[in-house]
Design a protein around this nucleic acid. Sequence first.
DNA 1: AAATGGAATTGAAGCGCTTCACAATATACA
DNA 2: TGTATATTGTGAAGCGCTTCAATTCCATTT
Lengths: 330, 330
Amino acid sequence: MEDVAKRAGVALGTVSNVINQPQKVSRATIDKVQRAIAELGFVPNRAARALAAGTSNTIGVVIADLSNSFFVDMARGAESIAAESSINVVLANADMRRSKQAANLDLFRQERMAGILLAPLPGADGSLLTGRNRTPLVFLNDAAIEGACTVSVDNEYGGYLAASHLLAIGRRRLLFAGDPAQAVPIADRLRGVERAVRETAGASLELSPTPEVQADDGRTLGFAIAHRPESERPDGIVAAADLLALGLVQILGADASIRIPEDIAITGYDNNRAAWESLIPITTIAQPGEQIGAVAMALLLEEIRDPEGHEHTHSVLEPTLVVRASTQRT
Amino acid sequence: MEDVAKRAGVALGTVSNVINQPQKVSRATIDKVQRAIAELGFVPNRAARALAAGTSNTIGVVIADLSNSFFVDMARGAESIAAESSINVVLANADMRRSKQAANLDLFRQERMAGILLAPLPGADGSLLTGRNRTPLVFLNDAAIEGACTVSVDNEYGGYLAASHLLAIGRRRLLFAGDPAQAVPIADRLRGVERAVRETAGASLELSPTPEVQADDGRTLGFAIAHRPESERPDGIVAAADLLALGLVQILGADASIRIPEDIAITGYDNNRAAWESLIPITTIAQPGEQIGAVAMALLLEEIRDPEGHEHTHSVLEPTLVVRASTQRT
DNA sequence: AAATGGAATTGAAGCGCTTCACAATATACA
DNA sequence: TGTATATTGTGAAGCGCTTCAATTCCATTT
């Protein structure tokens, strides 16, 4: 930078101003300096900048699991908002391990990031907000944390949406596939389903817990349902996840005595790739991943810009219903 | 850090040594200093460290597309190797845009990262290795670049593997699904298939280009094949990608007159989730994503440790065959 | 007891930038 | 013409760390 200053015939501070506050510098000087920068191929040193300024203009995103596209969507949404303020975003993957999550958080704090977005592993709590070195931090996809902003999705409403859709197309014998004891979001979804059923006269709900929510679990349940006498089969199934729904559709759809959606309509949850690549595309509840990221980034930027006046917000977004062939013939 | 030094009753430099070169400090002093660090909740400032030392111990990974699990695997492989040397890894997503790729590369260079791993967009060239500020850089999944290490996968061999497998289980009328003009890797895979066919007496190959390699393209082709007279159908299909294979399996598997794999055996490529979640799991060619990342990181660390003596290497890894039900009944 | 050498410790000199009090110059007004 | 007010530009003082020459301390050796 000293070389640039010399070459442009100005002071060190002026070069800095050209880079950071061009409005304080005259047109002519800006040109001179920028020419010198170009000629010398000057690349500013962000480490020095972060040190001198006390903070960088980069935001770190710590993600529980990179292989989950839901989290990746969040990251993308966050990036799009950050880009508007020309703020950089870097990611770190916790790979489902608590130790890596903590290490990545540490790293970003040590780098004096402007702020951190955290899509945590299940069971996150306020302890992640270590007392010292309070880098602004917003939680993604987690609502139960005090002392920081959170952005999450209303799973209860998602379940309600799915069940309401089935009820609206005339189904009355509903089945919920998935184990509410396995994960809090699944329990929330079930609550929403129960509410919808309660609100509809003549509707019944059967709970069918599965060990997990993989395609295989869906297939196992599918066989079980296919073997029932026709009168005891449900006419609508809310699966707790898309893969589960996929397994169900694969088995029930292959059974000659069952038509999807006429005899059994099926909904999934998450709007995974699996849902629309199925031979019979699956109706699902889409989580607004990008929107979560975008809202969270907006909240974070607000906190960064006004740390004092900032009040923590708990934002809850609504999922949306995506209707496909597994519930409605087109 | 000054406070820590004061509290422990030692000099500033000693605290630094405790953190970075404990072997140069006596046991007793280490204990004193570490106690002070803990009591004060001292968090070192990496920006300052990077500035003073001239480089950080963080490596940046720039990825063309985060939603592609192949790239995510590479990142994971890279991380596992870096962890062994307690080197941090951060990611940046180019989101399939050339401008973001360049911006992220700039960012990492400006942060004076120890090194960069780049899984580039198609069509990368040496221009990404800007002359000044030569941060060590290794290309992932791209072989055609001089002036840097590269780590890639042998697509020709992958195609050869797939075709050889079909030939080995007695198939002779092969069909390749996918357009070699659409992407270089697909053309490579086709070359491998052709080589295998050439080596086998009595084997023939039909080329069936598809617009893209999505499930829909597979379905379209599937219908076309199902409508052919039985004698004109292939008995083995090499699909250029798993989704393509998935579409084929969905349609051909649903046709009552066709048995998979007895009448038509099908292979995919990539070992996507889609391949094993299919009702009939699909035989595929697995790309060693994690291995690519691991090898690349090892190469990068070597270059970082000995910038002078380092010679650029072009490492080509071999994909592996994963046999599933679409070619072989278990 | 003096001399020797290695280990442990010190502290000052930067690393490359931002910031800010101040100086210089330009513009406006009476 | 002189003074007040903006507008630009200046350069020195850090930011928090690493490094390294210099110093101190001790255990050995002679």
